[in-house]
Design a protein around this nucleic acid. Sequence first.
RNA 1: GGAGGCGUGGUGUAGUGGCCUAACAUGCAGCCCUGUCAAGGCUGAGAUCGCGGGUUCGAAUCCCGUCGCUUCCGCCA
Length: 586
Amino acid sequence: MKTAMCGELRSTDIGREVVLMGWVHRRRTHGGLIFVDFRDTSGIVQLVFNPEISPSAHQVADDARVEYVLAVTGKVEARPAGTENPQLATGDVEVLIEDAKVLNTAKTPPFYINEDGEVDEFLRLRYRYLDLRRERMHNNILLRYRTTKALCNWLDRQGFVEIDTPVLVNETPGGAREFLVPSRLHPGEFFALPQSPQQFKQLLMVAGFERYYQVARCFRDEDLRADRQPEFTQLDMEMSFVDVEQVLQLVEGMLIDTVPEVCGKRMLTIPFPRITFEDAINLYGSDKPDIRFGLLLTDISDMVAESKFQVFASAISEGGQVKGIRIPGAASYTRREIDELGQIATRNGAKGLLTMALLPDGVKSPLTKFMDSTAVDAIVARLDGKEGDLLAFVADQPGVVADGLGALRLEIGQRLGLMDQDTLAFAWVIDAPLLEWNAEEGHWQAKHHQFTAPVEEDIPLLETSPGAARAKQYDIVCNGVELGGGSIRIHRRELQERVFRVLGMSDEEARRLFGHLLEAFEYGTPPHGGIALGLDRFIMLLAGEDSIRSVIAFPKTQSATCPLTGAPSPVGDNRLRELHVKAIES
RNA sequence: GGAGGCGUGGUGUAGUGGCCUAACAUGCAGCCCUGUCAAGGCUGAGAUCGCGGGUUCGAAUCCCGUCGCUUCCGCCA
């Protein structure tokens, strides 16, 4: 029987006779003495095989190779003075082996398990069970467990109850494409996998549970990104008898209490700053601002509206704006480097990037031909430009300016090393509009989702000026990542029906799709609201990773496949017939 | 749907028209080695350069196509 964990042995264990079971992490032979770094899920300890102590155990160690599984018996001893290894948690001790047995041999792994180097991601996923043995991945998965558990414990202490909701649900229009599951018992009918447990958690509030949470698996059949997988995990929460303020306070308290419990990163600002949606777009060019650094976007529209520089003047006369950003130390950039910056702006929609280089002998810019030096100096002053800086401007419609300069700002932050990996910059983004105009389909659509309550005084705007109505909605962002979002929900049938109508939904359609919810609202539904946190993204930030794949045990590739199991795969005609489904060529 | 990056011994990289009979590190195999910890020393094996076509006297290198991984745009209430 295994009597100790490798990574937990300390000098207080000296003298103990232990049985260890684990993997050969590394092996160093000295002809006589053999050292083995021995690993289990807890960590690594050094084993010493001395042929004078046990020739048979020494023989086992001599034959063993990396990743062999061994069972060893030996005595924990202090390392001889001067041979301690401070890089190892167990570095003060070693285990002198008296008996050893091979539990299993191992082929040479396809990549290093005892090193942290880059390996082709396909290969890692093909052999994910080996990838997960590697220290970094192993620790990420353990961190994920500890974090999830800490969050659940915290919620439990606050009176939250975890309740499962179904995975086979009804199709919900609006929002992400859903995975469909054919029904054998109902020919031609399909279940959908949930994008989120939204309706069920509201129904749990109707059911009177008051404080619900769930570690909920969610599914979206959309294209993948570094922070988007087709199946992902949300920490989903909902509360009755709350308004915006209580939800923010509670979630903020949960994060402030939990982060120090599971990782050593510091939180930049406590309490978390609250940024209006409008300010986020105006100042950061993003609805998920990275507030670890400044370099805010600065509006100069008023200074150039009358200028002879047509690009600026006409952008403004067409209802647009001109904004700039300061790039410290970039005045000396080469033409090519400046072009690179321009490409970042154009890739995100801008038509171009106009620059002003603040050189020792003056301002170098195409703009100087169109504006006198007083006007130019005023612009430099507004952007707080200093000698050596490069100022970059985009002129266009507000959304385009925000996207272009927002992307540029992140690139600059990256290049200048302003994104401190050890800082978590949480912030709330509040007061987002309830609705946005869908130009393609010609109707208003919910910016968050159709169950979000409008701010009370804006309710009259629903019919008169829908775009101006603000939502009781909030997003939490961290280091430029959208961590989660939620809202106070509509809990009265009349208001919900009004919102459906503004969204262009007929009463019949609303009843067909959401009749059960509307009906539920008639049976004493309490005011309620909640939030869903992207657990994968949260743990990614805690772990300092830049992809959620690094904190998911078995993720999909970017083309949504699993190289380990081969999923997805074609199924036989018999199976399809049983499900009343026919595959068609596309 | 679109744009970019990558694909060379097991792994990570170098090589970008002839100097390549493909280099380096590491891993692997064998031998030596009793205090190492990315141990060290010596010897050796290991790659038709993702795949298919083309250009060329000659292609890892250029062109076209294709597959895979990845980043981003669209998409993701």
